[in-house]
Design a protein around this nucleic acid. Sequence first.
DNA 1: CTACCGTTATATCGGAGCGATATACTTCTC
DNA 2: GAGAAGTATATCGCTCCGATATAACGGTAG
Lengths: 211, 211
Amino acid sequence: MLDLAILGLLEERDLHGYEIRKQLREHLGLLANVSFGSLYPALSRLVEAGAVEIAGDPAEERPPRTPPTGSLSGELAVFRTRRHTSPRSRRSRKVYRITDEGRRTFARLLAGGSPADDARSFGLRLAFARHLGPQARLALLERRRAALLQRLGEVQAASAGTPLDVYARSVVEHTVEGVHQDIRWLDRLIDTERRGAALTAEPVAHAAEDR
Amino acid sequence: MLDLAILGLLEERDLHGYEIRKQLREHLGLLANVSFGSLYPALSRLVEAGAVEIAGDPAEERPPRTPPTGSLSGELAVFRTRRHTSPRSRRSRKVYRITDEGRRTFARLLAGGSPADDARSFGLRLAFARHLGPQARLALLERRRAALLQRLGEVQAASAGTPLDVYARSVVEHTVEGVHQDIRWLDRLIDTERRGAALTAEPVAHAAEDR
DNA sequence: CTACCGTTATATCGGAGCGATATACTTCTC
DNA sequence: GAGAAGTATATCGCTCCGATATAACGGTAG
């Protein structure tokens, strides 16, 4: 689950751990609140599995734009100024880069290889849905829709029997309402997705307005 | 988190593990999808801590209504019939009962002793809110409201800067919309709570109005 | 009657995620 | 120049989850 998020971000560009967390908190902060206690082990795991590699500190990795002066002291001076004057010089950071193996893992995770289809996994997958083909996107959306419908049925059937007090009932009703809204949202997405698929499959003819 | 749920259900009546899970799945199935891998360790933990005790199988625990016949074979016959004809005779089940210590733990957890105030913990607390005093209930609701507002601000501020593609944006917008709806729901609850408090708090003289 | 299957029920294992905490360097502020 | 705040990596202990094993019972098909 975290692996998917990390690989998805690294697919975009190389990042170090702290920044991965920042992006996740900012973009999907309401969805997944990843902490360092899970992030760093996950990164180690991914390195271990060969899905990402350490690119080193970009301040050092970036080959010097200034061409070799020929003098050793000159080149050392570059490092010295970098280290002390450049605002880029940070403490030791590990910049991670995705590998080909990682890209394959990402595709697999995204397509649905992983087990749970809770709200978080789904939200994450959908957020990276641009890496999916149109048919896989549709499948993702419809699979989620079906799962929500099923859950809804189970809960409603069960809650019909037992009487709940005001507060518990309010909680149940509100979550049920939330699920309904999710389904409506999915319906909208599925609709525009179908339209889009029809358009891209046939890009010549008439124009596109959704909604 | 699970402890709270278990204690809350046991507060109502004695239950065995399997049934606890069933009730949780039925009532709060959309909120918390508790599995045995967490349930049984949690029960052991609670027994260890003295918060619940094992009441034994009710089929065996219940002292025989039939008075001792005086004949050994007669008493054995009772067991035999119990075992084979009564639909109550199940495999060994452990029925758990809450203790006074457990009731205290429950009150502490419910009031907000535990750390995280994610959606699940809050939903759980609210579902058991009838065990709370009116003021504590209000505090719970308002604490949650404040937390949601803060999160909302953070995410909106952050997402203003970075451009997202269609799918990621749709996810973010939908979750944001969900949070708005949560807040409206909380507002309604807070409102009725204030009204109710005013009514029950002042059956005699003039009103005690906070705010 | 017995052989099998679905349900009820308890339990354990490995792995993943989280909160708290430690550590260390840099940059800002007074 | 000293201390606060921000950036950054890392580990520990705990809880939770999914998968799996085990076992007893009820029903039913042969």
